[in-house]
């Protein structure tokens, strides 16, 4: 049986047994290479489920849809390891009760899809541990390497050019499972703390605010990058911040549901001595 068929059966079982009220997965999109989120509430709806190497979007953000989990019923969700990590962060930041989530785990590497064993977020902790151990020392991304080799002035010019395309549609924010604030700082308008204009300053303000808010929280799923309609390589900013946070605080985002947020916690051996 293919992975897709195995998981289809699993989704049907979860729904027909009443174990979950909904399974969030993928279905066919408007073109052969597209997949779109699929909210499955009946075993029959599971027939349209698709699971293949094109299923790369991190769906965990849908779990905090207003009211979805408030009836305390469980929800199943298809997640890759990055999705499990963001689920852990959502739990660690008290955004959901992780006991309500049944994970249907899978991974996609080099266009190959594999099933992952487990159904609770914690079942994937060994896998996530090993991801942390195997974080590459070098960026492994030609563009990121090019940026790393730049001096501060060149880097500024690079991002200024990239951000000049930003139209502040906030697709990056809306697609990000970590951007769950009911009212984002840029939407606080009494007073308006951050300019809404998408001119040079406004675009820098927005993208830097977001980079800081995601430091130590981004799991590198790439939702922002793929969502950006003007193709700003947003993932690189967050990848850089994740790298900094790992080096400075040995923090790898989303290790467990009890992991303390790096920028809201303190350890005696933190490298910043000025705090004490």
């Amino acid at each position: 049986m293919t992975i897709q068929e195995t998981y289809k059966t699993r989704a049907k079982e979860l729904l027909s047994s009443g174990r979950v009220k909904m399974v969030v997965g993928y279905k066919a999109g408007s073109t052969p290479d597209r997949r779109r989120p699929h909210f499955i509430r009946t075993p029959e709806e599971a027939d349209r489920l698709i699971l293949d190497s094109a299923c790369i979007a991190n769906l965990s953000g849908y779990l905090i849809t207003e009211g979805l989990l408030s009836d305390e019923k469980s929800v199943g969700i298809f997640l890759k390891p990055d999705g499990v990590r963001s689920l852990n962060i959502l739990a660690a930041e008290s955004q959901l009760n992780i006991e309500q989530i049944v994970v249907l785990g899978f991974d996609v590497n080099n266009n190959e899809i594999t099933a992952l064993k487990g159904e609770k977020a914690e079942d994937f902790s060994t896998l996530i541990e090993s991801l942390k151990e195997h974080v590459p020392q070098t960026p492994g991304n030609p563009l990121l390497e090019r940026i790393e080799a730049m001096n501060a002035k060149e880097r500024f010019a690079f991002w200024e050019a990239e951000f000049s395309r930003c139209i502040k549609c906030y697709a990056c924010r809306q697609a990000c499972p970590m951007c769950y604030c009911r009212r984002c700082i840029v939407d606080c308008n009494q007073p308006q703390w951050v300019n809404t204009s998408s001119h040079t300053l406004g675009n820098f303000e927005w993208n830097i605010v977001r980079a800081f808010h995601l430091s130590g929280r981004c799991v590198g799923c790439g939702n922002c990058d793929r969502a950006c309609p003007v193709n700003i390589p947003l993932r690189l900013i967050n990848a850089k911040m994740a790298h900094e946070v790992l080096g400075a605080f040995d923090h790898f985002a989303g290790m467990s549901q009890t992991q303390e947020p790096v920028l809201a916690s303190f350890k005696k051996d933190d490298s910043e001595t000025f705090i004490l």
Binding site: F39, I167, K168, C169, Y170, A171, Q174, A175, T196, A227
Partner: peptide
């Protein structure tokens, strides 16, 4: 609209969407 994430990609790329806001900076 269940999967709509509420961004403005569609409206801002649209040739005819025309809504605007005034802001004092």
């Amino acid at each position: 609209s269940m999967r709509c994430i509420g961004c403005a990609s569609c409206t801002f790329l649209c040739p005819t969407c025309h809504c605007f806001d005034f802001q004092d900076e």
